[in-house]
């Protein structure tokens, strides 16, 4: 059985946020909506200070808390482990947003769809065709670019990353690159104490 997951090599990440831009472009995300973000943090004390980067994305948890609390059945897991949201079924109650420990759910507000990226309601043709996939008042999140995955491609953030800091693949296949990286370089999951069994791993 396929179980898709992602590995972030934090040693390779340079914090360029090309992944963020690629994701916004691929998914036609409105202003203020991000499915992936590269967070930065300053570590150490003057004069020994450095900045580190932490790419974040929906972890497509095996025991997804967002799926468990969804009262309408809008959040569901595919057979390949990708956690999806059906905007047509979402009622916008926000249960998923307060259940997700990784803060990866975003509400689509009406103003975001009507104002557009440049404000004042002047939508570009790109926005006009892209915003049709969203329904106002519903919650949305990353779906690992499921259309691209179904077509045998990597998610847009992975395909764009200039340093190969993001690796996507089948966690159930012991010979896949993600499985080897996790095994050889001891992959760590974010907030493991939350018992959500994330399918995103960090290596250093």
């Amino acid at each position: 059985m396929t179980s898709y997951g992602m590995v972030f090599d934090v040693k390779r990440c340079i914090g360029c946020n090309a992944c963020t831009v690629a994701c916004k472009q691929e998914n036609s995300l409105p202003d203020g909506v991000f499915f992936t973000r590269t967070l930065s943090a300053e570590v150490g004390e003057f004069p020994n200070v450095s900045r580190t980067y932490l790419p974040t994305i929906c972890n497509h948890c095996e025991d997804a808390p967002c799926e468990k609390v969804c009262p309408s059945g809008a959040t569901y897991s595919r057979d390949d482990g990708i956690v999806m949201v059906d905007g047509a079924l979402c009622i916008g109650c926000g249960s998923c947003a307060v259940a997700c420990p990784y803060d990866m759910r975003t509400k689509i507000e009406e103003t975001q769809l009507t104002n557009g990226l440049f404000g004042e309601g002047n939508l570009t043709p790109f926005e006009e065709q892209g915003y049709t996939r969203f329904e106002c008042g519903t919650f949305t999140k990353c779906d690992f670019c499921s259309e691209r995955v179904d077509a045998g491609k990597d998610p847009a953030c992975v395909a764009t990353c200039p340093t190969d800091a993001r690796v996507f693949g089948d966690l159930d296949n012991p010979d896949s690159k993600v499985s080897r990286l996790i095994r050889d370089r001891v992959g760590r999951q974010p907030l493991p104490e939350k018992n959500t069994r994330p399918k995103v791993f960090y290596i250093d």
Binding site: C90, I91, C93, G94, C136, F139
Partner: peptide, 12 residues
Amino acid sequence: MGVPSKSWRAIL
């Protein structure tokens, strides 16, 4: 609710 007209779906 974000979509009040669909709130009935919460019974599902």
